[in-house]
Amino acid sequence: MTASAGEHAVVSKGEFAKLINVSPGRVSQYIAEGKISGDALVGTGRLSKINVPVAREQLRRHLDIGQMLGNGMETQLAGPQKVAEPTFDQVAAEGAEPRPDLPDLRTPSIEDKLKQERLFQEQIRSRKAAEDEEARKGRFTPTEEVTASNTRIAVQMIQTFEGALPTMAAKIASKFELPVRDVLHELRSEFTEMRSRAADAARAKAEVSPATVETEIGETMLEAAE
């Protein structure tokens, strides 16, 4: 039986599972949990059948949004597209007598709003989990930590070079028969000037560099977050 043929019929559990794109076992679980019950069931026991529109409506009310985001993501509960009744504004625009008792179908119900809010919160949690996973892999690193680490490395290198100047001065002085003090003075002067130029260049580069760098989370992680 096709999906179009079964939308307004009483079908078997297996056929209903195909209609909403889940496994037969999942349908049995819905029945056991009471998410499909009452008028949605025709008959009793293993041979009971499913009233399609009633069961769809029950599942829309009872399915948890977290479950639908997990292994029920592809569950098709909407059914075939139905022609909605005209809204209050549409009736008035067509010149017919307004019906105040007719609800405006454009206004979401409280239940719809709650589901949308829960979906939004679930998306935030999923995206945060994806970002945390990327950070664990080393792709995302706090800017402050990177800056502090680079600064420590730079200071250590400068101290290492500066600490080696007396040794270098002594070797140069010995080779060219010059006073060690004079050679050390020249080396330190040149080193100070070189360090100043390097600091100016680093500051200029930092001024034109962005504070953050955009990247992309893996496609699978992004799909989960959505």
Results as ranks from 00 to 15, higher is better:
His8Asp: 11
His8Met: 05
Ala9Trp: 03
Ser12Lys: 03
Gly14Ser: 08
Glu15Thr: 08
Ile20Met: 01
Asn21Asp: 11
Pro24Val: 05
Ala32Cys: 00
Lys35Trp: 07
Gly38Trp: 04
Asp39Gln: 08
Leu41His: 06
Leu41Asp: 07
Thr44Met: 04
Thr44Pro: 01
Arg46Gly: 04
Arg46Cys: 01
Arg46Val: 04
Val52Gly: 02
Arg61Asn: 14
Leu63Val: 08
Ile65Tyr: 02
Gly66Gln: 12
Leu69His: 12
Asn71Asp: 13
Glu74His: 14
Gln81Ile: 15
Glu85Gly: 03
Glu97Tyr: 06
Pro98Cys: 05
Arg99Glu: 12
Pro103Arg: 08
Arg106Leu: 06
Pro108Leu: 06
Lys113Pro: 01
Leu119Gln: 12
Leu119Trp: 10
Leu119Met: 13
Leu119His: 11
Gln121Trp: 10
Glu122Asp: 10
Ile124His: 10
Ile124Asn: 07
Arg125Cys: 01
Ser126Asn: 14
Ala129Val: 11
Ala129Phe: 10
Ala135Tyr: 08
Arg136Gln: 09
Phe140Lys: 12
Thr141Cys: 02
Pro142Ser: 06
Val146Asn: 00
Ser149Pro: 00
Thr151Cys: 07
Thr151Glu: 14
Arg152Gln: 11
Ile153Gly: 00
Ile153Pro: 00
Gln156Ser: 11
Ile158Val: 05
Thr160His: 09
Glu162Val: 05
Ala164Glu: 13
Pro166Lys: 01
Ala169Ser: 10
Ala170Ile: 02
Ser174Trp: 00
Arg181Gly: 09
Leu184Ile: 02
Leu187His: 04
Ser189Ala: 13
Glu190Gly: 08
Phe191Ser: 12
Met194Ile: 03
Ala198Glu: 14
Asp200Cys: 05
Ala201Pro: 06
Lys205Gln: 15
Ser209Trp: 04
Pro210Lys: 06
Ala211Ile: 10
Thr212Asn: 11
Thr212Glu: 15
Thr215Asn: 03
Glu216His: 15
Thr220Phe: 07
Met221Gly: 06
Ala224Trp: 09
Ala224Asn: 13
